[in-house]
Design a binder for these strands. Sequence first.
DNA 1: AACCCGCTCAACCGCGGAGGG
DNA 2: GCCCTCCGCGGTTGAGCGGGT
Length: 320
Amino acid sequence: MGRPPCCDKEGVKKGPWTPEEDIILVTYIQEHGPGNWRAVPTKTGLSRCSKSCRLRWTNYLRPGIKRGNFTEQEEKMIIHLQDLLGNRWAAIASYLPQRTDNDIKNYWNTHLKKKLKKLQTDNNSEGNFEDEKFSSSSSQRIPRGQWERRLQTDIQMAKKALSEALSPQKPISSNFSSSMSSNIKEQPHQSICYASSADNIARLLKGWMKNPQKSSKSSLTQNSFNNFVVSAGTDTASSGTKCGEYLSETFESLFGFEPLESFESSNSEFSQSLSPDHASTILQDESKPDHIANEMPFSLLEKWLLDEASCPDKNSVRLW
DNA sequence: AACCCGCTCAACCGCGGAGGG
DNA sequence: GCCCTCCGCGGTTGAGCGGGT
């Protein structure tokens, strides 16, 4: 009955990944790029199912992942996006370039849910506003106007993505389209991208020598990110800066606060990594589209929110 | 010191969509 | 149109850890 488990075979290892397994996986992906996960266990000799390999890569080993505490801005952004999109963690993660959907989901479940609940109880005396807000989080009760707008946004995004995809010169820049094109591998760029992973592994190994217990947990990905970002852009200042500025403005206009610390502090890093060359390389090459920093979704969202702002009555589930 | 309890987060499970034959 | 395979996503679990008693 039902679908058999993807990896119920004997000898398939489960549980936490060892550093050695990480190295094997990263080395393989460095050579072949992410994708074709089915082949990964057999080709690497890992006793893991393909799913496990993909998950390990996308949630942990993939370059560009930021770990550690969420900033206040990130928090607000998650809450806002969760409000708009519901529990579509992958979609939410696409607006937080350095966070994985799993991270965001975990953070929501462990921190933000409680926080909102607390807010809700605190505000109970002032009416049911938070009640409404909180229950809307389950995406069960999306106000009609909001749902329509959401649908409209999706359609607009799809249209734009399509037109971009049909335009051969233009780099694919939209969240949507890069997601759609995430399987298109641009081999010539991969060396840039995955070399950084190899480097990270080297650093990681150093870390393990120093700190065998913890290093596998923290050093890899942070180093991955730093290293990745450094390798991603040093010669792209002008376009990167422009993009960074745009992001800053958009963030501010979209969420009403200063850009994410990560964006700002790594302006020289992250924004540089967003140059047409590097960003498209980095983002499209990954199995999970990090694309995020692309203009289109933000501008659409911004427009959407501005529309909402002009109809405040429909904007009843705004927290901030 | 030993135990309990709550929290965190990496990893797993199962479903559904996409795409190819 | 159907079937199969692969992949991605969201929900859930459980090991590990730290704080409290």
